[in-house]
Write a protein that binds this DNA or RNA. Structure first.
Length: 903
RNA sequence: GGGCGCGUAGCUCAGAUGGUUUAGAGCGCUUCCCUUACAAGGAAGAAGCCGGGGGUUCGAGUCCCUCCGCGCCCA
């Protein structure tokens, strides 16, 4: 049963198979809510390869799950894969060499992507070895795959131009690619021993999730929490989609102030063409500084602070824009910063988010120049009438913003409207977090869900929700509150993309063929999920699609967070399995990383607030990041990612979990391979200590009689209480640290002290006590380690138990304390102190530990000497001490006389 | 600029509500030991003005103030 030379190799595969077969992690349905511990596992994005960061945080959750399971809870621990959204689209584009063209009809026969050859095109820069068959788990430590490639999709590709495929075909490819990834992810998660109920998995694009997502949206719509509006929208020109506030990144970018002249020729405030003869007159001119001179044709006003004496006389008057010669008013608004540039700014539609504020609050017209592809529209705004202005605009038409900027600077320089050279500065520019071109702002019709960004009562209600959850660590709640406090708009959920959950609506077309936006056609709930681009609204037929008097489908999909925010509803069977939902929702635990509090955590609270008038979970545990040795966040885009597979092979899953468990909740942890070695050593030690303790005959019902044994059990009782409390409060790192430190002391001291006695050197009764205690302690230690190192503990448990350690009952401190009776921790402490002193003496004398001690003199207080008396036989045996003399004194010391070296 | 966190041995970190006399662990380093549980191991040792300064207290790494440095989130 117990191998001669126990090892760790092969334990993962062996026990994973057994656990699968015995189904010990399967959720036991039908339990009352109080007996259930439900976990809202955040579905990892499957579009990239797994790295050690995933192992890190998912292990933390698993430790808690395993502890709750051993504590008697029915643990509800499903797993999802987040596969909808842009990351997948980008990878599909690169991997298959395709791009989506929604205007194409579905091609049911061919799979264009597969046909055009996967491997050939993927050479661009995804060496997509990681996504084929063996999956990301087998991936090499590649850096920068999709993130870079995706953004370069159209230009610069030296390979073939992408093959255009229909939206349904494109989605098929997305599903194909993610399916193989998901398998690989599951394999890796099994390999590291996550005790997930693998019969309960979902993917955020599957039909269940689409249904929940659409149903929840329709409910939001019905209750007035979702609405659509035509408004200026942050827009990514690369992906050509709207993005939400939560997806913004500010990046410091170089730019340049251009000092431009607006003419204040109060006289010529009328007709446009000819009166530019006052070129040199300059008294009424106003100079503004701007980093975006190309937006002058979209300028609708100038604005300065109301208290700014320099410009106060000009408020209410007008000036004319350089070259384009458009008359614009000079206005006052408190958001204008007198310290910036010349203290007066031009308002364009739209250069940045402040422009939106001004435009809205000052009730200004819209003069759009940049199209959704980020290029200047062919036609100038109507308001530009002068020939010179139209000619100048023609030089910008079709150009990107950056190119137009260079062009217009040249124009202004020619006309003398640009003073001096542009002055380089660096300033924060808003980017889509996944994009690499600055965001533009375009006016478009979009769907929103209210989130308190425009409603103080709702804002406060959501902040209050934060206080109804337990945050681990507690200070993370501040981030939640800060984010809500800083919201400046509702949650934009529509995206102009393809691989996502469609917005389940259609619009009537009037006789002119224009959509009637106000009263969307809704599907019957029983037909969900629907795809409005394929399905028809109730009462219509396909022949009426896109025909005047007919209907048109909403072309957009929902933000990936609009689905991800529903994982509690998705996982617990909301509106599909009410019994399950009742016993699992609100959920007990949401583990996640701290950087997505603003997105995932917050949006999930919003949905539960609306749908169920509750918080979605009782506890949220925020895990830290893995940092590389230089303390930079480990991320694919940085190229410093550690892939887990190699580490798993050399150190084993338990060692990797050990490393993960050492990272305290919420704390960023530097990756340190040394920790893997330590974890592995601990696992090996557990094998060997178990083997040792079990080598003696089973003492049956023998009683624990010896003082030393009872004293050790007393300390073990304290450990059990301590670790139990730590795990209850999600402090797995503390629990592990305590258990580990006890365990090493246990092997160093207790095992050595009782070794001789266990072998029978002090008679049968004393031996039985030792053997019994060894077994009791071993059993408890195996259980305490089980949540952390499930494989090795299951292995050693199996040497002497029939069931799984993972469904055994968590140890009780009281039982151990009862065995200890009135014996305190002191005897084992005194014995260990003497033994340690003897070891030190031998080590300092450079003698082996088995060297005999002629005579050891222990000086200590009378009280402790009396205690030592009770354990003296064990101490003498362990230290190989021939004669042990005691002497009273206030200071503890041990004088060691070694026996002469034998020759 | 606002918020949050951090600064303890060469390195990575523990030190929960201030108090077991001379501040802990692991790694690394040095020395020793192939001991019948364990050599991909074991034992032992050296090593710290607990970021600086001020304060509260009988007593502070632990609380307060301030300064310096670092990181993150948000403007």
């Amino acid at each position: 049963m117990i191998p001669d030379k126990p090892g760790l190799e092969g334990l993962e595969a062996k026990w994973d198979a057994v656990w699968e077969e015995t189904a010990i992690y399967r959720f036991a349905e039908g339990q009352p809510r109080s007996e259930v511990f439900s976990i809202d596992t955040p579905p990892p994005t499957v579009s990239g390869s797994l790295h050690v960061g995933h192992v890190f945080s998912y292990t933390h959750t698993d430790i808690i799950a395993r502890h709750r399971r051993m504590s008697g809870k029915a643990v509800f621990y499903p797993m999802g894969w987040d596969d909808n959204g842009l990351p997948t689209e980008r990878r599909v584009q690169n991997y298959y060499g395709v791009s989506c063209d929604p205007s194409l009809p579905y091609d049911p026969g061919g799979n264009p992507g597969s046909a055009t050859g996967t491997e050939s095109d993927s050479t661009t820069d995804t060496k997509s070895g990681s996504v084929s068959g063996t999956g990301p788990a087998g991936g090499k430590p590649e850096k920068q795959t999709a993130s870079k490639a995706g953004s370069k999709q159209s230009s610069k590709s030296d390979a073939q131009p992408p093959v255009k495929v229909s939206r349904p075909n494109f989605i098929k490819l997305c599903e194909e690619l993610t399916a193989s990834d998901e398998q690989a992810f599951e394999q890796l998660f099994r390999h590291i021993g996550l005790s997930v109920d693998w019969t309960r998995t979902y993917t955020t694009i599957d039909s269940h999730c689409r249904r929940v997502s659409q149903l929840a949206f329709l409910e939001n719509l019905r209750r007035g929490e979702a609405y659509q509006i035509e408004a200026p929208t942050l827009w990514d020109v690369t992906f050509q989609t709207a993005v939400a506030q939560a997806e913004l990144d500010d990046r410091e970018k170089p730019g340049a102030y251009h000092k431009l002249r607006f003419r204040g020729d109060g006289l010529s405030s009328g007709n446009g063409d000819s009166d530019r003869d006052g070129l040199s007159s300059g008294d009424g001119d106003i100079w503004i500084d701007t980093t975006r001179p190309e937006l002058v044709p979209s300028c609708v006003a100038l604005v300065a602070h109301p208290d700014d004496a320099r410009y106060r006389p000009r408020f209410g008057s007008t000036v004319r824009s350089p070259v384009f010669d458009v008359e614009v008013p000079v206005l006052a608004h408190p958001a204008a910063d007198p310290e910036k540039g010349t203290g007066i700014a031009m308002i364009c539609t739209f250069g940045d988010t402040t422009d939106i504020t001004w435009w809205r609050e000052l009730n200004l017209p819209t003069r759009t120049v940049i199209d959704r592809d980020g290029r200047f529209a062919v036609e100038p705004p109507e308001v530009i009438k002068s020939q010179a202005g139209r000619a100048a605009y023609a030089r910008l038409a079709g150009k990107t913003a950056a190119a137009a900027r260079r062009e217009i600077a040249a124009v202004f320089a020619e006309t003398g409207d640009l003073e001096g050279e542009p002055r380089p500065i660096t300033h924060p520019v808003k980017f889509f977090e996944k994009g690499d071109k600055p965001l533009e702002i375009v006016a478009s019709r979009q769907w929103y869900i209210r989130n308190g960004g425009r409603d103080d009562a709702l804002r406060q209600a959501l902040i209050d929700r934060g206080t109804q959850m337990h945050w681990i660590p507690g200070y993370m709640r501040a981030r939640y509150e800060n984010w809500i406090a800083g919201l400046n708009g509702d949650w934009l959920i529509s995206r102009q993309r393809y691989f996502g959950v469609p917005i389940p609506l259609w619009y009537r077309l009037n006789e002119a063929g224009s959509p009637v936006w106000d009263d969307p056609l809704q599907p019957d709930a029983s037909t969900l999920p629907v795809d409005p681009s394929v399905d028809c609204p109730p009462g219509y037929s396909e022949t009426q699609r896109d025909r005047p008097g007919g209907f048109t489908g909403d072309p957009d999909v929902m933000d990936t967070w609009a689905t991800s925010s529903l994982t509690p509803q998705i996982a617990t069977g909301w509106r599909s399995d009410e019994a399950l939902h009742e016993s699992t929702f609100p959920m007990d635990l949401r583990p996640q990383a701290h950087d997505i509090i603003r997105t995932w955590l917050f949006s999930t609270v919003v949905r539960a607030h609306f749908d169920a008038d509750t918080v979605p979970w009782r506890n949220c545990a925020l895990s830290g990041w893995i940092l590389d040795p230089d303390r930079k966040k480990m991320a694919k885009s940085v190229g410093n990612v550690q892939v887990p597979t190699g580490l798993l092979e050399s150190y084993g899953a338990d060692a990797m979990r050990y490393w993960a468990a050492c990272g305290r909740p919420g704390t960023d942890t530097a990756f340190d391979e040394q920790q893997f070695r330590i974890g592995r050593r601990l696992a090996v030690k557990l094998l060997n200590a178990s083997k040792f303790a079990l080598r003696f005959d089973n003492p049956g019902e023998a009683e624990v009689t010896e003082i030393l044994d009872r004293s050790m059990l007393r300390r073990l009782a304290d450990l059990v209480d301590d670790t139990g409390a730590a795990l209850e409060s999600f402090d797995y790192a503390r629990a592990l640290e305590r258990t580990e430190s006890f365990f090493w002391a246990f092997t160093d001291d207790y095992l050595e002290l009782v070794k001789a006695r266990a072998y029978g050197e002090q008679g049968e009764a004393a031996s039985q006590s030792a053997r019994q205690t060894l077994r009791i302690a071993l059993e408890v230690l195996q259980q305490l380690f089980a949540p952390f190192m499930p494989f090795v503990t299951e292995e050693v448990w199996s040497w002497w138990h029939s069931g799984s350690v993972h469904v055994s009952a968590w140890p009780q401190g009281d039982r151990l304390r009862a065995l200890a009776g009135d014996v305190t921790a002191q005897p084992s402490e005194v014995a260990a102190a003497v033994l340690s002193a003897v070891r030190r003496a031998k080590s300092e004398a450079k003698r082996p530990l088995r060297a005999e001690v002629q005579c050891a003199t222990v000086t200590d207080t009378a009280e402790r000497l009396a205690v030592l008396q009770a354990v003296t036989d064990d101490v003498k045996a362990a230290g190989r001490i021939n004669e042990l003399i005691t002497a009273e004194g206030s200071e503890f010391s041990v004088k060691v006389e070694l026996a002469p070296e034998q020759t």
